[in-house]
């Protein structure tokens, strides 16, 4: 029974990590493309950018909804505390996503495209910014009492470190968005995104280095954990692997390869994610409440594994199928008869 009490929350930690990773990777390029659309001056290019996402953005965004529901069910305390502590950045994200979602459907039919262009670009930016603040604040830690209830103040989430995380995340999204567009477009447009990808790769790298340095310097708990074995070895390896991947990415961009930049970027995201997961584990509300304290009753976790667990391969299957159907370069109108 005791083993079960440990095992089930760990399983759910991993499942939530998977949902979050899928979300950040997939909606990451949607948001990145949205942010890139802000730099576009002509209508045709913007149309093409939005068309490249038209069929997938909703499924991608839904990973966030799935993640939210699963967090609510598996770790009710964490859902309650984190969301109420981060009310403002969460709603920043939600407002951004609202503008973006509506822009997708209404721009196509509208004569005044300007409004929807702004909604799309600024919405994507706002959503990414909100997510960055949420991420930054969660890594930094949320002040709670012994029962895990939030006791901090409304503006706790805003400081230079969470801002740094937010800006880096935005760069990361621009990077994955650019590499996605390299995959989906051709000609002049593709050339532009080789350039944006290179730029974003460099700025993301700088951000990541700053965060990596700042984390052990400013957080005692993180320092103690990171600098003692076995995590020490893992944390020695992750930055090295990261640098290797960035080098591979830049090389593929210089060679103007079409597919590999996207793959290297995904691997960079994955590596970052594993690193973050290891820093946070076993906490779900860093740095005080562990997954064991916040977990729902074992019966709830088992019940959810039965219902949600068997759906994971099915969800993955039809999502992949959708990408296969729409593989290849984008062209022309979305609805194409």
């Amino acid at each position: 029974m005791d083993a079960l009490l440990h095992f089930l929350p760990q399983v759910w930690f991993v499942i939530l990590g998977l949902f979050l990773f899928l979300y950040v990777m997939l909606d990451g390029f949607d948001l990145g493309v949205g942010i890139l659309s802000l730099t576009s001056s002509d209508e045709e290019r913007r149309s093409l950018l939005m068309t490249s996402l038209g069929n997938v953005w909703d499924a991608n965004e839904t990973w966030l909804v799935v993640m939210g529901g699963a967090l609510f069910g598996a770790f009710p305390l964490a859902y309650a505390t984190i969301l109420s502590a981060l009310y403002i950045p969460i709603f920043m994200m939600i407002f951004g996503l609202i503008f973006r979602a509506v822009a997708f459907e209404f721009r196509e039919h509208s004569n005044r495209k300007l409004v929807w262009n702004i909604a799309f670009g600024a919405g994507s930016f706002l959503a990414a910014l909100g997510q960055g603040f949420v991420l930054g604040s969660v890594i930094e830690g949320i002040s709670v009492d012994e029962a895990g209830h939030f006791i901090g103040s409304t503006w706790d989430w805003l400081d230079w470190r969470s801002l740094l995380v937010a800006l880096t995340l935005i760069q990361g999204y621009v990077l994955i968005g650019s590499t996605y567009l390299i995959l989906k477009t051709e000609g002049e447009l593709q050339k532009t995104h080789f350039r944006t990808a290179k730029l974003a790769a460099v700025t993301t790298l700088i951000g990541a280095i700053l965060i990596t340095i700042a984390t052990p310097v400013f957080y005692e708990t993180a320092r103690i954990r990171l600098f003692s074995p076995p995590l020490l070895y893992i944390f020695a390896v992750i930055p090295l692997l990261g640098l290797l991947l960035v080098w591979l990415l830049l090389r593929s961009l210089n060679r103007e390869e079409e597919r590999t930049p996207f793959i290297w970027t995904i691997l960079i995201f994955l590596l970052t994610f594993i690193g973050l997961g290891l820093v946070v584990f076993p906490y779900i509300i860093p740095t005080q409440i562990t997954i064991y304290q916040a977990a729902a009753a074992p019966s709830a976790l088992v019940f959810m594994i039965i219902f949600v667990g068997f759906l994971i391969p099915i969800m993955l299957f039809y999502n992949i199928y959708q990408y296969v159907v729409f593989r290849g370069k984008v062209a022309g109108s979305a609805y194409g008869d």
């Binding site: 799935v66 939210g68 609510f72 069910g73 009710p76 019940f303 219902f307 759906l311």
Partner: peptide, 15 residues
């Protein structure tokens, strides 16, 4: 009510 209500919202999302 997360144990029940939350799981149901989770199912709604995934299913």
């Amino acid at each position: 009510v997360g144990d029940f209500f939350g799981s149901i919202l989770g199912f709604e999302g995934a299913m």
